[in-house]
């Protein structure tokens, strides 16, 4: 059966598609700030750190969104505390805190639930998206997009020139933890599509692709969201046709888009750079 026909016919596929598009958009938007602030490793950390929260939520029978946000933000605070109050550098404190949270999560999940659930949380399974998951993703998406729109100026200046922001009285730390909260929410939304392990790819790869193509933050965010959702749709399609793991396929599509851009981008691409260098050199010989 063709993908489009199947899409018309099966509700689960429609849900999967809508969910992955929304995840592609919001991870692209938040990812832009993560890339520009040099927080790629932090993105990886927070996404892993939601695991114990998810486990405890299952145990308490509440929506896993709440537990995930709590442990995600707590880990971000812990990382900040260690790197600001000791000689341990930021990347090391990230490494310590997120592996601890992740290990705790694995133990909790295996104690409380079967290992199949762990597999789905780690690697995602977009075709098993339930209506409640889809609605949660939509609500998270709307909250994230409104937040970024409302605080665009503050996110821009604290990313580019935090010293100026602090000098005129912006609460830089609060804005950092606000961004970490949004990041946690994006991670939760992505659990179903790409899973914890690969969330960081959805945050970094489309944003990095956009970064190679533009010199304006607003266009970078827009392009990043486009690449994110395009990767989701294409990845879902390929994984459906070829019966591959959805999360992994989505990530590889995003990587392919990145590599094509890395080579062919008009300004930053390695191909045009090489051609321009060569032209210059031959013009002297």
């Amino acid at each position: 059966m063709m993908f489009l026909e199947a899409l018309m016919q099966y509700e689960y596929l429609q849900k999967a598609l809508l969910t992955s598009i929304m995840v592609g958009i919001i991870s692209g938007v938040i990812g832009s700030f993560i890339v520009l602030r040099g927080l790629a490793l932090m993105g990886d950390a927070i996404s892993h750190a939601v695991l114990p929260g998810v486990a405890v939520s299952y145990f308490l029978g509440i929506n896993f969104f709440f537990g995930a946000v709590v442990t995600g933000v707590l880990t971000a605070v812990g990382i900040g505390y260690i790197s600001q109050n000791s000689r341990i550098k930021n990347d090391s404190s990230i490494g310590i805190m997120f592996t601890a949270a992740f290990a705790l999560g694995i133990i909790l999940i295996t104690l409380l639930k079967s290992s199949t659930d762990l597999y789905h949380i780690l690697f995602g399974n977009v075709l098993a998206v339930r209506p409640s998951d889809m609605w949660m993703t939509m609500i998270i998406g709307v909250i994230v997009l409104i937040s970024v729109f409302a605080f665009y100026k503050e996110l821009l200046i604290t990313s580019f020139d935090p010293t100026m922001a602090q000098a005129y009285g912006l609460p830089n730390k609060l804005i950092h933890y606000f961004l970490m909260t949004l990041l946690t929410m994006v991670t939760v939304a992505s659990l179903q599509t790409v899973g914890i392990i690969l969330v960081v790819a959805m945050l970094i790869t489309p944003a990095a692709t956009a970064y190679l193509l533009t010199n304006r933050l607003s266009s970078m965010i827009f392009l990043s969201a486009c690449f994110g959702s395009l990767s989701s749709v294409l990845g879902l399609y390929i994984s459906y046709r070829a019966n591959l793991a959805s999360g992994a396929t989505i990530v590889l599509v995003a990587t392919t888009l990145f590599l094509l851009t890395l080579i062919f981008s008009p300004k930053q691409g390695v191909l045009w750079r090489a051609i321009r260098t060569r032209q210059k050199r031959t013009s002297y010989s």
Binding site: L156, F160, T163, R216
Partner: peptide, 30 residues
Amino acid sequence: RKQIAYVPQRNNLDWDFPINVLDTVLLGTY
């Protein structure tokens, strides 16, 4: 605080940030 303009030392900025000259000056109105 908002009545004080501060020009920090140049070395601790990300010069690859996707922002053009006019938008950088526009930050002064924030």
